[in-house]
Design a protein around this nucleic acid. Structure first.
Lengths: 126, 126
DNA sequence: TACAGTACTTTTTATAGCAAGGTACTAAAT
DNA sequence: ATTTAGTACCTTGCTATAAAAAGTACTGTA
């Protein structure tokens, strides 16, 4: 029973959404901040996942960035949402809400069934 | 702005969970029924996705099946949860609930950190 | 015997996240 | 002046998974 893998699979699809949300909330932030927030929300993400994703979102026009120097280390890339990014995030919110509803539908016991159940002839093998 | 792809990504991770839920609710059902239920819940799935997934879940010991003849076509493989499958499904439920909470955390403007940490003095020094 | 409908199967392809290793800059210690 | 530690960003190769598409097989009907 490897629950870890399935957990990871569930997490995968929503990373983009969460990352855009975090950037949207913070107005402007850099990768390590995002990693930190994700960890606090119990969404494990590693650098090798985040950096390519940020680059892709920037290339797709959802994010822009500027370099800002730090007092205590190398300069940081501060990302923020573009106009397109805001619209995209809005769509993702809808998608997420729909997904939660869909899962509820399949998860709930009470599910209006089609009446056409065939007569079950017990024919076992295997 | 290709929202479709991101929607698909979000869907991916929860398919296993939804399919196990459906089988758990119905006690016993076959692939086409599952496809039907998924579609009704607005979770698009195609045969090429479902059949290999069912086979994998069976090989992992979460599902068992029996052939049952149909009056109107070829015999059907009726799947049901094994004992291990029930436990696994229970774990997935927890995982899903945690995920929903995690997404809420990253999505909400107010990023309240878990209350278990008492003194929440804003001391994010860098 | 041919055809339509249902059900299950397999192969190939594309994508995304992850692990691991690498580069570069700053500040403090030696 | 050089080394070390810490921070931040980047890249390559691997693996798992869903989707597309084509295929097999069984049943009843025309």
């Amino acid at each position: 029973m490897n629950i870890e893998n399935t957990q990871a699979q569930m997490r995968k699809g929503i990373l983009e959404f969460c990352i855009l949300s975090i950037i949207g909330n913070d107005e402007e932030c850099y990768a390590s901040e995002i990693l930190d927030r994700m960890k606090r929300a119990k969404l494990i993400v590693v650098e090798g996942t985040l950096y390519p994703l940020l680059t892709r979102l920037k290339n797709d026009g959802y994010l822009s960035y500027q370099w800002i120097e730090s007092k205590s280390g190398p300069p940081r890339k501060y990302y923020k949402l573009t106009g397109l990014g805001e619209k995209f995030l809005e769509e993702l919110r809808k998608t997420w809400d729909e997904l939660v509803r869909a899962v509820d539908l399949t998860t709930l016991k009470i599910q209006s069934t089609p009446s056409s159940k065939t007569s079950q002839i017990e024919s076992n093998n295997e």
